[in-house]
Structure formats: C-alpha cells, structure tokens
C-alpha cells in the first residue's frame, strides 16, 4: 500500500497539510498542490496513482484538472472531495469517470477507505490489462505492469 502515489489538491493549505500528515500516519504517501496549475505540473512530473481533487479553486478549477487528467492519464483514479454539493457538478464529474464524489466535510477514515478501494480497483485494472498483454504474448510488458 505504501507504494501508492497520492496527490492532494485543494486551495485550503492548512487542510491539505494536515490531511497529508494524517494519511502518512496511515502509511499513505502523498504530495500536495494548492491550485490547478500546480496540480497539473505535478501530474505531468510524477504521474500519481490517485488524485484527491477539490472542485472550487482559483485559476484552473478542479473540473478542468479532471478533464486534462482524464485526457492524458486515463489510468489515474480521481476522487472528488468538494464542499460544492451541486448535483450538476456531480453528474459531470461522474460522467468524466471519477472513482468517487465525496462531499465535505469528509471524515479521514472514509477518505482512506475510498483511497484503498481506488487502489484496489486500479490494481485490478492493471492486472486485467497485464493478463490481456500476456494473452497477446507481450510477457515483458505484462511482467513490468504486475511489478509496478
């Protein structure tokens, strides 16, 4: 579990810092971004596995980040964590394929549970992809994927 790369994106810096520390206490390593642009550059540099994303942010907002991530990195699992309960946003986010849509205030235990579920789904997806590669005779790729 400790090899999952998590990116926390929220403009509330206090919240993000504390959350990051609390996740670390639970053996979850995370990086932080305080706005959309920062988030996108970190995604481009480090390609995290899971992004915890707020929607309402100055500059590039969460929804835009989500769109770009979906486009370039379809394998990254995104969990929305927002204070904005607008059901339009929720349905848009879900259409863009987010793993879950959580409404603030979110208890850290719930968040951790959803992160783990997302990681599991990701692994499952990877293993299915690996199986597909193996089937196709690309064993090297498959092995690499399983290891990753």
């Amino acid at each position: 579990m400790n090899d999952i790369k998590i990116l926390l994106v929220d403009d509330e810096e206090d919240f993000i810092r504390t959350l990051s520390e609390r996740l670390e206490m639970r053996d979850l390593k995370s990086n932080t971004a305080f706005d959309g642009e920062q988030a996108i550059s970190i995604v481009n540099d480090q390609e995290p596995d899971i992004i915890i994303l707020d929607l309402k942010m100055p500059g590039i907002d969460g929804m835009e980040v989500l769109r770009r991530v979906r486009k370039s990195y379809p394998n990254i699992q995104v969990i929305i964590q927002t204070g904005h309960g607008n059901d339009l946003d929720e349905s848009e986010a879900r259409q863009l394929g987010v793993f879950d849509y959580l409404k603030k205030p979110v208890d850290v235990e719930l968040l951790v549970e959803r992160i783990k579920a997302a990681a599991k789904a990701m692994k499952l997806k990877d293993s299915m992809a690996a199986a597909a590669f193996a089937e196709a005779g690309e064993h090297d790729t498959a092995r690499k994927m399983m290891k990753g």
Binding site: E12, T18, R22, G83, N86
Partner: peptide, 21 residues
C-alpha cells in the same frame, strides 16, 4: 443555501481534519 453551504463545508472540513489530527 447552496452558496452558504459551500462556504461552510470547507471550514467544516478543516475543523474535522484538524480535530482528527
């Protein structure tokens, strides 16, 4: 209500996170 709720949810999130911390 929607805008108030949204503005309140963020501080609530911080309070609960800090309290949890």
């Amino acid at each position: 209500a929607a805008s108030v709720a949204h503005e309140i949810n963020n501080p609530l999130q911080i309070i609960t996170t800090q309290a949890g911390w």
